[in-house]
Amino acid sequence: MTDSTNKNHPRNESYHGVDELLPEMYDILRSKAHLHRMKLGGEITLNTTEVVHEAYEKLVNGKDKPFWNDRAHFLRIAARTMRFILIDYIRTRDRDKRGGKLKDLTLNETSGQHLVAGNESLFSLHEALGKLEAISPRHVAVVECRFFAGYSIEETSEALNISPATVKRDWTLARTWLYKNL
């Protein structure tokens, strides 16, 4: 009579689950967008942190056979998923531009420019992270948590199971390297 080994714990390491979380996140994003529009008459002010937390509330409280092991695991997957969402969107936009289908943005001109320059920086950040992955995967994870998901030091420490002091140091070192390599 042995029950102490948890059968429901697939030992999937790293960040697997992004595939599964992605449609859920899109769905949340879509319904949030809808809500915000209803409330604020067209003004949407979302941030990545809010969406991730919303996802956590919705998905963790729904008993829908989760594919993550615990909160920390969820936070890790969510951070990487957020990176994927943003980069994928930039990619789509760029492709549209190349195809000559550039549409007017509803954003005003200044923030529009901000966005174009930002798009490129974000994309090169993503590419630089690809290189960093081969050097130190942990630092990539820290960047995903701190930057893409906007987690606090404490949340990042929880997600990655490293001390807050290490988070701080990792974040500084990663920033230094990325800034030089962008």
């Binding site: 879509r30 949030k32 990545t48 954003l107 893409f148």
Partner: peptide, 19 residues
Amino acid sequence: SLRGVADDILNEKALEFER
């Protein structure tokens, strides 16, 4: 500043879903 951009992009993405 790049984090601001990330949020902007998220909002744009959300807008696209709706409009």
